[in-house]
Lab assay of single mutants.
Amino acid sequence: EVTIKANLIFANGSTQTAEFKGTFEKATSEAYAYADTLKKDNGEYTVDVADKGYTLNIKFAG
């Protein structure tokens, strides 16, 4: 089991951190699915992958 950390960075400057656990593939998939649910209210997003994929910096356009 691994932990994927998602740093969520919103257009208004606020930030939030979420963690997803499971296999690497499952946790990564859940992180992207979570970002997709936030897209409606926060706009499109870009992802900067860090720490060999264990950290995702997800920035929303607003």
Rank of each mutant, 00 (worst) to 15 (best):
F24P: 05
F24Y: 10
G13S: 12
K21C: 04
N57D: 05
A31P: 01
N42R: 14
K59R: 13
T15L: 15
I58K: 00
F60A: 00
Y54W: 15
N57E: 09
Y32G: 02
A61F: 13
E30L: 07
D51C: 03
F60Q: 01
A18G: 10
K5C: 03
V47T: 11
D48H: 15
K21W: 07
K21Y: 10
A31D: 00
K39Y: 08
D36L: 07
A18K: 15
K52D: 07
G13V: 07
A11M: 07
A33S: 13
Q16G: 13
I9N: 15
I4F: 02
V2N: 11
N7Q: 08
F10L: 05
N12I: 15
L8Y: 11
I9K: 11
A50V: 14
V2H: 05
T17N: 12
T28M: 12
E30R: 13
Y34H: 11
I58A: 01
G62L: 14
A11D: 14
G13C: 04
G43D: 03
V2D: 13
Y45D: 00
G43E: 06
N12Y: 15
T3I: 10
A27Q: 02
K39C: 03
T23I: 12
K39Q: 11
N12F: 09
K26M: 11
T23Q: 13
E19G: 04
L8D: 00
I9C: 04
Q16S: 09
Y32M: 06
A35R: 00
Q16R: 06
S29D: 12
K5R: 06
Q16D: 06
T23F: 03
Q16M: 10
K5D: 03
I4W: 02
K39S: 05
Q16C: 04
Y32E: 03
K52F: 15
D51Y: 05
K40Q: 11
I58R: 00
K39T: 14
T15Q: 09
F60G: 00
G53W: 03
V49Q: 14
G53I: 02
F60Y: 09
I58C: 03
K39M: 14
L8M: 09
A18R: 12
V47N: 02
N57I: 14
A50G: 10
F24E: 07
S29A: 14
T23V: 15
T17D: 09
K40I: 08
D51W: 02
K5N: 09
K52N: 09
K59T: 14
G43T: 02
F24V: 14
V47Q: 02
A33E: 13
A11G: 06
K26E: 12
Y34T: 05
S29C: 04
I58P: 00
N57L: 04
I58H: 01
E19C: 04
D41A: 14
K40P: 07
T15V: 15
A35G: 02
G22K: 01
D36H: 05
T55S: 13
V2W: 07
A61I: 12
T55K: 10
K5P: 01
D36P: 01
N7T: 12
F20N: 00
L38I: 04
L8V: 13
F10Q: 04
K39D: 02
Y54G: 14
E30C: 03
I4P: 00
L8E: 00
N42C: 03
T46H: 06
D51Q: 06
K59D: 05
